[in-house]
Amino acid sequence: ELSQDQQALLSYILEAYNKHRIPPDMAKKLLQEQFSTEENFLLLTEMATSHVQVLVEFTKNIPGFQSLDHEDQIALLKGSAVEAMFLRSAQAFTRKMPHGHTEMLEERIRKSGMSEKFIVPMFNFYKSIGGLQMMQEEHALLTAITILSPDRPYIKDQKAVELLQEAMLEVLSKFCKLKHPQEPQHFARLLGRLTELRTLHHHHAEMLESWRMS
């Protein structure tokens, strides 16, 4: 069972995760009329910016985060922003949306100038997240775990980050056992998504590089 402290940590993280979302006005824009490739690209860029701001607000609320070295806080966010965004978009994609919306979003992404090479693994990731049928608590904790990865570049006090991440992992592990007693592999499957996220992150960096070149 979760200890009282762990239960409090979980509730706190969940609340922060639910509170900090992309503003609905921004999300609605994605479902409005068709845009050109360039406008699509700009819209997705604007979305990404908003996404990062939301992510920072959530991260500030992760207990212990603000006590980390300030430059380490930036390094953690810089190193994880892309992965946390993929995770959040995967959740948006797998949520039940009104008829036709999923297709419209897919279309917009496909028409934003990204190559198929990057789009296919991204949609595969969305599907793999969908298959896990994650609970909101699991999304919140997995996002926090992604952000608190001590092995990101330029982290000075890795030990301090590791301690925070371990506390989250412990809560997630217990939560999975409590909520999925029939699936002993559930926790391991969730952690497996972190490896997939690293791969997507790598693809994303390659994509940015190819954009810069052109």
Binding site: L42, T49, V52, H70, Q73, I74, L77, K78, A81
Partner: peptide
């Protein structure tokens, strides 16, 4: 516009709590 800022700038600003600007 914010879309012209780099990732690190956006993070630094948001960490300082100037998102609402």
């Amino acid at each position: 516009p914010a879309s012209n800022l780099g990732l690190e700038d956006i993070i630094r600003k948001a960490l300082m709590g100037t998102v609402e600007e």
